[in-house]
Amino acid sequence: MDAQDKLYTETMKGFWRENPVFVQLLGLCPALAVTNSAINGLAMGGATAFVLLGSSILVSLFRNLIPKQVRITSFIIIIATFVTVADLSLQALLPAVHKELGAFIALIVVNCLILGRQEAFASRNRFPYAVGDAVGMAVGFTFALVLVGGIREVLGNGSLFGFSLFGESFEPWVIMILPPGGFLTLGVLLIIFAQVKKSRDKRSALEAGKEAA
């Protein structure tokens, strides 16, 4: 596999094949907590993407300078710095978004997706791959949050991105925008993803069998 191919695979894997939420089951806390509307999912995904990208770049650049024994501590320092920067900048520049997400911005520090990518990927790979990996994972995470948020908003409030879809006669399924709705939506999506993966594995196993024969 040449460098170009590798960069492509590392970037694309986060979006679908190794989607952080649906396949790796990482970052479930924000995926459940802030996804009661599509726009909240998008904003949370954006903030997480900023932190993930920034941290991956720094960790990858300094990976040979950070001694093994203190690597987790160093990663956390880097991540926490980016989160605080994101928190303060949002408060200063986009107060409306900050008002919606509130406490969840600060909680990006403990999003295991971010620390997980540093430990599993950025600290072991060269800079361009780390960037590709971070971009892919961030896009995949944002996609998952918008999907969960969109479904919950449509069912629970009859709107999408704030635009009303069904008019006055729609009786909102209120539980979908409450915490249980997050679990229900995510659970159903996980079933679908698991089924897709299963049938794909079966198919590739069959093909491999044919070739062997």
């Binding site: 009661n36 509307s37 919606e100 409030n157 409450l178």
Partner: peptide
């Protein structure tokens, strides 16, 4: 300023 349940 409030952090009441979104949607309710």
């Amino acid at each position: 300023e409030s952090k009441e349940t979104p949607g309710l």
